[in-house]
Amino acid sequence: MEKGIGGHPFPHFNVPLTFRGKFVVTIHDMLMHRSRGLSATTLPAPLYFLKRLGYRIVFDNAVRKSYSILAPSQSVKDELIAEYNLSPDKIKVTYEGFDKKISGGNNIDMPKPYFVFTGNAYPHKNLQGLIKAIKALNTKSEHKVFLAIASARNIFTQRVEKLILDTGAKDYVKILGFVPDEKLGSLYKNSIGFVFPSFSEGFGLPGLEALASGTLLLASNIKVFREIYGDNALYFDPKDVESIVVAMNMALSVGSDARKNKISKSIRFVNKYSWAKMAEETLNIYYESCNSLRPGK
């Protein structure tokens, strides 16, 4: 959809401030609205606050001047409406998909039993709560239970490594660094469960990957996760370490037959999400917007 046809698609909020045409923008999440403070950056304070100012100017411009907005979940749509007082009709929900090839893969050497987390180590991911939970779980367990963290190494994983040492959890937590897609499937499948302790997200793709790979899902009881995963997750309060521990114990206590049934049900469930379906819905919205924006419409 080009400007000359009636509009322009922007797959991210970084619409140039000088752009004067009609456009449709995709807003994937509002994490930077929620995640504030120097713990969420590697920049010195003056540059960080300058970056945040620029972010808000560009983000607000994209939201307010767009003809239509695409969001990956109803939760993000609701956040946008509340923040910017938008008409619900302006925002269309197009659910994302996940890479189904991840459900296979080669084994990674990891002691069992273990839980797994994959993703970046930004503060909103709440790895602090997860690490405290695995330490608390092991203080009450007769046998060691481990946590594998698959996250590309950077300043944020360095902070997590320090946290592991400070909390005395080094005997239970292993940071694997970056794990390629061809190995993620086995990492998920051989785990007790994938733990997703985030305070905020726009969708929740890793949880779908984990379910498709054949493991249990333990997730924060935030609105977006309940929307995306339905009854296919064990939910907990991400702000309460004991609540995370309870969910972990529930996953550990699931019997073999019950686990197989739950995983089988979840694998069927995740098939409702696909990139092909999202692409088709997105193109339809682009075409509708094009027709609405044609001269004389």
Rank of each mutant, 00 (worst) to 15 (best):
D181Q: 12
G105E: 04
S220L: 00
V246G: 02
P16Q: 11
V93D: 08
I263C: 08
S274V: 01
F10W: 12
G7R: 10
S289P: 03
G7S: 13
P46L: 11
A40F: 13
G202L: 12
A121H: 06
G129N: 03
F199P: 03
E280T: 08
L47V: 01
E161T: 03
H8G: 09
T282S: 06
K112G: 00
V58F: 15
G296C: 06
I108A: 00
V93M: 05
E182D: 14
M30S: 05
I134P: 04
M248R: 00
S73V: 05
L217H: 07
F146T: 00
L218F: 05
K170P: 02
V116W: 04
R294N: 09
E288K: 02
S274Y: 03
L293H: 10
V246I: 12
D231L: 09
M250C: 07
L147K: 00
K132A: 12
F225T: 00
A150G: 11
L216A: 04
V145M: 06
N120A: 06
I228R: 10
I244L: 10
K65R: 15
K277R: 14
D109P: 00
V245F: 10
F19H: 11
R52K: 15
Y286I: 09
S87A: 11
E227Y: 10
N107T: 13
